[in-house]
């Protein structure tokens, strides 16, 4: 049976936009700058460094290359492991060689994408999880003071998930021959970037 539609397709987006505009009026009556800054700065934080961005994208692309169940296991597990790293950073539990770990994540995850490496699922999850700890820890120790913890955390997690989703979406071109080659090329680029980050971290 064809699904019913309450609104014509052309009116859906304008209706959503109108709802946002209407609601923002209510919210503005209670706005406090620190709270807005909390969500915005949390959302921006994972996008703040190329090393974070390429590693997150590589996780998504690699998941798409590996297919089910990795394609859904990695996005479910990664935010939680990364949050664990953030928790460690926040409460002051040290993690040695964070910058080196982040650089290695780009280098190795890029290499995995480039080589279309297919390890056992557990190996892939552990590898990605360890790198997630480094990324989360770096974010946890770089938190700006005076922000709203809840909104900052929400923004941070949503942005991380969005980066994964972008990576997975890019990885879906894996179904085409040219797409496979393009992804492997992208993996090589990410790996080279990781090597540069590593050089900078060790310098």
């Amino acid at each position: 049976m064809k699904p019913a539609r309450y609104l014509p397709r052309k009116l859906t987006l304008p209706a959503i936009a109108a709802a946002f505009v209407a609601l923002s009026q209510t919210a503005h009556a209670h706005i406090e700058k620190g709270e807005v800054g909390g969500f915005a700065s949390g959302f921006k934080h994972p996008w703040s460094g190329a090393d974070h961005i390429v590693a997150m994208l590589a996780v998504g692309i690699w998941g798409a290359q590996l297919g089910a169940p990795a394609i859904w296991l990695l996005p479910v597990a990664f935010p939680m492991v990364m949050a664990m790293g953030g928790f460690m950073g926040l409460v002051g539990i040290p993690l040695p060689g964070v910058e080196i770990g982040i650089a290695l994540s780009a280098l190795l995850l890029g290499a995995m994408v480039c080589g279309e490496v297919r390890p056992k699922l557990a190996v892939a999850v552990v590898l990605v999880g360890i790198f997630g700890l480094f990324h989360g820890h770096a974010h946890g120790t770089e938190l700006p003071p005076g922000q709203s913890g809840l909104l900052y955390s929400l923004g941070f997690v949503i942005a991380t998930g969005t980066l994964h989703a972008v990576g997975i979406s890019l990885g879906l071109v894996h179904h085409w021959r040219a797409g496979k080659l393009a992804l492997r090329g992208a993996g090589a680029v990410i790996s080279v970037m990781g090597a540069v980050f590593l050089w900078q971290a060790l310098r």
Binding site: V76, P79, F87, L154, G161
Partner: peptide, 26 residues
């Protein structure tokens, strides 16, 4: 799976929030 991903985001937010509260009180 989408629902489960939403759950993992909520849990991750809770973990960060816990760290945040310990960070502020510590």
């Amino acid at each position: 799976i989408v629902v489960r991903v939403a759950g993992s985001w909520i849990a991750a937010t809770g973990l960060l929030l816990l760290g945040w509260s310990l960070h502020k009180t510590g």
